[in-house]
Design a protein around this nucleic acid. Structure first.
Lengths: 328, 328
DNA sequence: CACCTCCATGTAATCGATTACATTCCAGCG
DNA sequence: CGCTGGAATGTAATCGATTACATGGAGGTG
């Protein structure tokens, strides 16, 4: 592999000049410049990024931390991040934790070892306090998933209000007995949405039945399991509000297997407005999050943090109800 | 940020000793070792990866190159890659091209600038010849998507035979007029599958109608578009064979909107056996690929290539037909 | 006691770039 | 002709680690 020295020798100049040509600095004679370029060509030289990064103490690379990439929702957020990152000349490196603490540590090591300049975190697999100290040490922005404190700026929707609005929508459609398929105990977004649910019921004087709250997670299978548990109760609710579209779809699927049809026998509401919510039959009424914008804004925040802008505020973006066929 | 020098100073030893402790070399007195460890603790020191990588001329990082992460199929392949990579102490860096040549170049730059040790490529957005020369210069393994030559080892299924088997399956179910929703002109896998289709029809003496071949791509919307085009013809085929599950699902959706029901009026067959193929209604009969294993094997190949094993052979893994409800 | 061995540790070169500072060269001017 | 200034280029320090080689000291042996 050719290095800058080889190029310098081949072109009969010093390494400094080669470097100047590579980074197209001014003050290089046209003649020498082309001589260097020719040497680069013939040697198939490409600057070593490690040397450059070390010298500059910066990599122009950022980390996106996800639980899994198999989630349609995140894929769109990532697209927003990538587009903005490209604009700012950053390379995006996606790493997944798979809910595994060890994997998470490996990813955090990328920050500590300066292999990336900063990170956008969309998962939540460590204690609050530990995360806070990480945020003090490195440029970090959260997207979607909120945290109790505000150690890092966060970009996302107002989960409480989004849920409140959705539940009120169901109530306006005559539903009073509404089951909740939540995201699991670990998720703060899920917790906030539950609060929104409680508030909406309270406002309309509807008593809360704790037996209707299920903590199965944000997955398709969570919907299956939720229905199986629900069917053990003596009476079916009028509606199910699932905190993820895929959970809603799992529920619809299981219900149909049991001969219960949506929305005739029961209404189902999803969350996220992922592509599948439109693809399936019936299509899912859902709460849309501006995924692409969340990603874009998160990257924008991270980028200005990396450029030395001090303390940044979190950004709340608007949610939106999308009416489709699964609620009647 | 503390460096190795700071730690050395704080512990009253040389940088060499600190390095030895970090990399837990033998021949360090227990006493000095703990002194160094204490200094590391108090200074919150973490070794700079750039310095280390530069010195070692290796990063223990590999690149996974995808078109988009929003594809369920790849997500499972990536899981296989990640698990094997972890076993071999590599970090996986996912980058997406979004079908964009500039993005692809940015990713290739990661190889050239030695920011990653090697790459697993699952997309195909450059001319054959260019790719071949890239493979000569860097450790690269292909997964899933095949290339004409064999510049790099490839792990995947036998697309020709898989398609042949699927078509024969349809023929055995009495279908003769079978439309093909293909992956697009750029895709070699799609090309091979078309050949398999032609061969199967030929074997059973069924004439090929070129008007039944549609090149719309591997997406959901491709299924929608395909049906719209198909409905302009005067007669509906007996079956549709889509080269991706999402395309099959798009087709089913559009058909149902037009009042045509699957599988009663027309059968639909998918490809990949992604999670959605089981989730939707009706569930999709499909050709399963061993996605996780493909990823695992690809990483295994790359890893041994990185460890100096010279020329490696491609690996073909078995496909499998999964019967569900969309074919009758 | 002189010498050898081996363990623990230190010194300094090295990886491949960038860049502050030094140097060279030439044109322009009085 | 000699001086000045600025453009073009070179020299060498630097980024933060690893590691070959050097060194010093303790312990063993004849």
């Amino acid at each position: 592999m050719a290095t800058i020295k080889d190029v310098a020798k081949a072109a009969g100049v010093s390494v400094a000049t080669v470097s100047r040509v590579i980074n197209n600095a001014e003050n290089v004679k046209e003649e020498t410049k082309s001589a260097v370029e020719k040497a680069i060509q013939t040697l198939h030289y490409s600057p070593n990024g490690l040397g450059r990064n070390l010298r500059r103490l910066e990599t122009k690379r950022i980390l996106v931390l996800l639980n899994t990439i198999s989630n349609q929702f995140f894929s769109r957020v990532v697209k927003g991040i990538e587009d903005k990152a490209r604009e700012e000349n950053y390379t995006v490196m996606i790493c997944t934790t798979r809910g595994n603490r060890k994997n998470l540590n490996d990813s955090i090591a990328l920050l500590q070892s300066k292999v990336v300049d900063g990170a956008i975190v969309m998962t939540r697999e460590m204690p609050e306090e530990e995360f806070a100290s990480l945020c003090r040490a490195y440029p970090i922005v959260c997207a979607c998933e909120p945290w109790e404190g505000n150690a890092a700026p966060r970009v996302g929707i107002d989960d409480f209000t989004a849920s409140f609005d959705a539940v009120e929508f169901l109530i306006h459609h005559g539903k009073e007995k509404i089951a909740l398929f939540e995201g699991g105990k670990g998720s703060y977004s899920s917790y906030l949405r539950e609060l929104g649910y409680r508030e909406a019921l309270k406002k309309h004087g509807i008593p809360i039945e704790e037996a209707l709250l299920f903590q199965e997670g944000y997955t398709y299978n969570a919907g299956i399991r939720g229905i199986d548990k629900l069917l053990q109760q003596r009476e079916l609710p009028q509606a199910i509000f699932a905190f993820a579209d895929s959970t809603a779809i799992g529920a619809v699927k299981r219900l149909s297997e049991k001969g219960i049809s949506v929305p005739e026998d029961i209404s189902v509401m999803g969350f996220d407005n992922t592509a599948v919510s439109e693809m399936c039959l019936p299509s899912i009424t859902t709460v849309a999050q501006p995924q692409y914008e969340i990603g874009w804004k998160a990257m924008e925040l991270l980028s200005s943090q990396l450029n030395g802008v001090p303390k940044l505020k979190s950004i709340t973006l608007p949610h939106r109800l999308i009416q489709r066929d699964s609620v009647k």
